[in-house]
Simulated scan of single mutants.
Amino acid sequence: MAASKRSVVSCFFLVLLLAEANAQGLKVGFYSKTCPQVEGIVKKVVFAAMKKAPTLGAPLLRMFFHDCFVRGCDGSILLDSSNNQAEKNAVPNLSLRGFGIIDDSKAALEKVCPGIVSCSDILALIARDAVVALEGPTWEVETGRRDGRVSNINEVNLPSPFDNITKLITEFSTKGLNEKDLVVLSGGHTIGMGHCPLMSNRLYNFTGRGDSDPSLDSEYASNLRKKCKPADTTTALEMDPGSFKTFDVSYFKLVAKRRGLFQSDAALLDNSKTRGYVLQQARGSTFFHDFGVSMVKMGRNGVLTGRAGEIRSMCRVRN
């Protein structure tokens, strides 16, 4: 048993070392000579789309997160499949929107610098620009990723809105992300919508006795029950009521008041490190800076660089 445990630990650290080695191929300004216009072109496409549909910001940010948590940040979330077996067909990814923005950005770049910029880098830039378009922070995006050739629905195993703090910490740690990264990246819930099926268990029969989740503020729970009936599968709820189209710090104020929409939001109060960060940001914020740092860190996860993978001509299909 002891040998088996040592083997598992050794494999885990080997994975981290390989990921770190790959991430060394990333840098800010990777395309400075081969496609210096890349960031301006992507930003123009994103801002034009967001001006018409600001609600695209949250799914675009989530798309990058979902990509990086499965096979690493290799653009595998973007691939279509003819038999619905690609990552984008998994249940957690069915609510993602904005794939056309990636397509438009890629098409614009192919006209200027064909075969140079990867779809995985485009997605990383779009995630940043979507946040900026919603009055959020900016950060320097490392580029140099190459695109993966595999996208498998069976490999999709993402953190869930139903997860407790122990599971969340474990899931993030396998991607090289710590407790602070977990709570910082959860702050992305300051934008976007959630749907009743993802949280109605907190309102009805939470412990099997017809009760609500005791970690949920009672007044907030009462308001949510007016919007989400037990069988409701379609109603959308603002994750950050009142400012769900603005990237700000109010998410942490809500969580501190036990008004986080999901169990995974409430779970942030169940660990001393994550709770401390929530309470700190509820009073005065370093969140904007911290968010950029954690996004860069997540963006190094499992990347393909050098001659690995490919540079797709179209983001939805392999070359």
Score class of each variant (00 low, 15 high):
Leu224Glu: 02
Leu203His: 01
Leu216Ile: 01
Val249His: 13
Asn205Val: 11
Phe247Gln: 09
His195Ala: 11
Ala221Arg: 04
His195Asp: 05
Leu237Asp: 04
Thr234Asn: 12
Phe247Ala: 12
Thr246Asp: 14
Lys245Thr: 14
Thr234Cys: 05
Tyr220Asn: 11
Arg209Leu: 13
Ala231Thr: 14
Ser218Gly: 02
Ser215Arg: 13
Leu216Glu: 00
Arg202Met: 14
Leu203Lys: 05
Val249Leu: 10
Phe244Lys: 11
Pro230Phe: 01
Asp232Phe: 09
Thr234Pro: 02
Pro230Asp: 00
Asp211Phe: 01
Ser200Val: 06
Ser250Gln: 15
Ala221Lys: 01
Ser250Cys: 11
Glu219Asn: 15
Thr235Asp: 07
Asp248Cys: 12
Glu238Asn: 10
Pro197Asp: 08
Ser243Thr: 15
Tyr204Gln: 00
Glu238Cys: 08
Met193His: 12
Cys196Pro: 00
Ser250Lys: 15
Asn205Gly: 15
Asn223Glu: 14
Ser218His: 03
Lys226Asp: 13
Pro230Met: 02
Thr234Ala: 12
Glu219Met: 13
Met239Ser: 04
Ala236Tyr: 08
Arg202His: 14
Tyr204Leu: 04
Lys245Arg: 14
Thr235Trp: 05
Ser250Gly: 12
Ser218Arg: 06
Phe244Cys: 09
Ala236Thr: 11
Gly210Pro: 03
Asp217Gly: 01
Phe244Gln: 12
Glu238Ser: 14
Pro230Lys: 02
Phe244Leu: 08
Asn223Tyr: 09
Thr246Arg: 15
Thr234Ser: 13
Asp240Lys: 12
Met239Arg: 06
Thr235Lys: 08
Pro230Ser: 00
Thr207Val: 07
Leu237Pro: 05
Arg202Leu: 12
Met239His: 04
Asn223Ile: 08
Ser250Ile: 10
Ser200Trp: 01
Tyr204Ser: 00
Ser218Gln: 06
Ser222Gly: 10
